[in-house]
């Protein structure tokens, strides 16, 4: 599959699924006849963060978020009930 053909000399890849990928490049002259042969393919390995780590950190995040929201809401409620002790 051809990923890119044109004058740019670099490219940026993202969003690949986990697995091994192979890429190779070829130089092309102005005439389609003048082109080099394919380079040695190089391998790219896409690995993702482990499941357990993701689940653990997400749970910690969810817990931290919930406690934070609840604390602010409770604090807000209680402070509204405080009669204006401060305006004195």
């Amino acid at each position: 599959m051809v990923r890119y053909e044109g004058p740019d000399q670099a490219t940026y890849l993202s969003g690949l699924a986990a697995g091994n990928y192979f890429f190779r490049v070829m130089a092309k002259g102005p005439q389609s006849a003048a082109s080099s042969s394919w380079s040695q393919p190089f391998e790219l390995q896409v690995v993702f963060v482990g499941t357990h780590q993701v689940i653990l950190l997400s749970l910690i995040g969810l817990a931290g978020f919930t406690i934070l929201v609840v604390s602010i809401m409770v604090g807000h409620r209680l402070s509204q009930r405080e009669p204006k002790v401060l305006s004195s």
């Binding site: 993702f48 963060v49 499941t51 950190l57 997400s58 995040g61 931290g64």
Partner: peptide, 11 residues
């Protein structure tokens, strides 16, 4: 995975 993690981190 990274997107899920960055959700809370960003927050």
């Amino acid at each position: 995975p990274v997107a899920l993690l960055s959700l809370f981190n960003n927050m």
